[in-house]
Amino acid sequence: MPERSRSLRDRLAERGIDRVLWLLLPAAALLGMLFVYPFLYGLGLSVQSQEGTPGIGNYLRFFGDDFQRSTIAKTFALAIPAAALNVGISIPIAYKLRGPVRHKRVITTLLVLPATLGTVLVAEGLIRYFGPIGWFNQLLMAIGIIDAPLQLTHNYIGVMASLIITGFPLSLLLVLGHASGIDPDLERAAATLGAGPSERFRRVILPLMLPGITIAFVLAFVAAFAVFPSAVMVGNPSGETRVISIAAYQAAFERFDYPMASAIAMIMAALQFAVVGSVFLVRSRLYRGSTSGAKG
């Protein structure tokens, strides 16, 4: 049949474009208005002064000021170890739990709890539990490991603890969810081909878990990067845990310097994209092919 006799609608439908796509419109419009537009608006705002003069003065001021610039290092000092730790512990546990294990449902259910509690509640609990007169210090003193209470809150340790309590279960669930989808025949195939347990883990299971591990790491990093309530509540928000989100918040809501706040938000976004992007880049070099079955 000649091309010309077919209607435009037919030809579009052939490429998957038809009325069903209108269903995407509300969601796309909403995100356009509430995510893309504010972002671009913030980007525009960030390259002008509070009086409206264009220029990259905000960025220069941020990077020129030691106190401000150091928030980047402080943020990374929390986010990278927290994400690495959370995912690192998750890998062997997920490897063990990936098959049919008794009480698996109970374990995963317990893991969801801290995630639903949220950072604010965990921070409040930590203030009590890790505090100088909290149970944790009481226990250590009772066993005789220490003589005086350890300073565990209102510093780096407190924030790190809160990041692990809220972040580790999330990481484990993500890695586990992915690892459970790995076809158990693949490990069996490796065994019949002569690979021992550690070789099977290294050459088959770990590479196949890698996509789940990268996603878990990225999400753990992003969650830890924006640490705000716990950095304020169980951290030392004017000292060692003055992370970049506190700097952004103070600029916006204490000094009402919206251009500066926007500039810091843009820097945060750029840093997150840089880390997320490089993680995916490393992964794509390490791994190809699909996750589970080999059926095409």
Partner: peptide
């Protein structure tokens, strides 16, 4: 891994990576 057998699986179990 010590038996020196070969096995062909129903779903082939080819390593996707």
């Amino acid at each position: 891994e010590r038996r020196r057998f070969g096995m062909v699986f129903q779903n082939y179990a080819l390593f996707p990576h």
